[in-house]
């Protein structure tokens, strides 16, 4: 459970974006079956979670809080479909809860990651572009924040303030951005001295314009790689927090708290442990694979033929 968006996937420096970069990348991506499979799986998971209320009503005919105390610990079965993944200790449909849990877990992951991204890009650009005292302050702040093990801070804050899904998202969104900032800052630093930026400066373009029109597009592709990894990391962190009883609080289901809940009953119903655990694993794996595949596609040099 690493706390920051650690670059598990190696990053290469950004280069001048040519018109063909994206289309080349797309071409290579299409040929990368593993990444495509991961992207498809993730899309299915996201769509299913979004459709949770519809599926619950029409396919499974169950709400996520509906109990059936006569069918507690129902083993997985196709009939009724609501017990596709079994029933929990209150006879609630595991599959429906998993779908709703997906809404929460994925929401936290995606939204918090976008917050990280916004802060990370903003501060990274400013820091890398202006340098000097601004950079010193931001860098110092990042160093300090990084010195407090973020996972501790997160645990303390969540315990003390018992957040709901939204607050948790905001807290994670405000805490996990340092990795992205560092990356963007480094890239901006390098790009700043490049000819096309110098040219833009020479013709008197405004700083913000250079940052957003010239620097950002060049690092954006690699940022998507970081984003994918960041989402994966956040989903893991959220589930770990919920597992400790510090994240999303029942009866709102999240993958982490479903797993935590099931851990009490595993001697009775092991399938209650397996489905949320496997879903977290699958989601995170897909995100990391996408990150990796995207990186390779964007930067074939790294993939390099040796």
């Amino acid at each position: 459970m690493s706390a920051t968006a650690t670059p598990l996937i190696a990053m290469a420096p950004a280069r001048r974006a040519s018109a063909g970069l994206w289309s080349n990348a797309l071409y290579r991506l299409r040929r990368d079956r593993l990444t495509l499979a991961a992207a498809t799986t993730l899309t299915v998971l996201v769509v299913l979670s979004i459709l949770a209320p519809l599926l619950a009503e029409h396919v499974f005919d169950r709400s996520f809080e509906q109990q059936d105390l006569l069918k507690t610990y129902h083993p997985p079965t196709l009939d009724p479909p609501a017990y596709l993944l079994g029933g929990d200790e209150l006879g609630r449909s595991q599959v429906v809860r998993l779908l709703y849990g997906g809404q929460v877990s994925l929401f936290v992951g995606f939204v918090a990651a976008f917050m990280n991204l916004t802060i990370g890009i903003g501060l990274g650009l400013i820091s890398g572009y202006f340098r000097g005292p601004v950079d010193d302050v931001i860098t110092w702040f990042i160093t300090t924040l990084n010195s407090i093990p973020i996972i501790f801070l997160l645990i303390i804050i969540t315990t003390l303030f018992a957040p709901g899904a939204l607050t948790l998202t905001i807290i994670i969104g405000l805490l996990f951005w340092t990795g992205i900032t560092n990356f963007v800052r480094g890239q901006t630093f390098a790009l700043r001295e490049r000819e096309f930026i110098l040219a833009a400066r020479t013709i008197g373009a405004a700083s913000w314009r250079i940052m957003f029109r010239h620097v950002l597009p060049n690092i954006l592709p690699l940022i998507f790689v970081l984003l994918a990894i960041d989402i994966g990391t956040i989903i893991l962190a959220e589930s770990a927090l919920s597992y400790l009883g510090l994240g999303i609080v029942p009866p709102t289901p999240s993958w982490g708290n479903m797993l935590s809940n099931a851990s009490t009953y595993f001697s009775r119903a092991w399938w209650l442990v397996v489905s949320p655990g496997a879903t977290i694993f699958l989601t995170v794996l897909c995100l990391y694979l996408i990150g990796d595949g995207l990186r390779d596609a964007l930067d074939p040099r790294l993939k390099g033929a040796s």
Binding site: E65, Q67, A162, G245, V249, P250, P251, N261, T264
Partner: peptide, 25 residues
């Protein structure tokens, strides 16, 4: 926050819902 209490809440809520009382847990 307590697994048992949340289940108790669910049971109480289910009953109250049937008499037209909206329950926020």
């Amino acid at each position: 926050v307590n697994a048992l209490r949340q289940k108790e809440q669910d049971i109480v809520k289910a009953g109250w819902k049937q008499i037209g009382v909206d329950v926020e847990l």
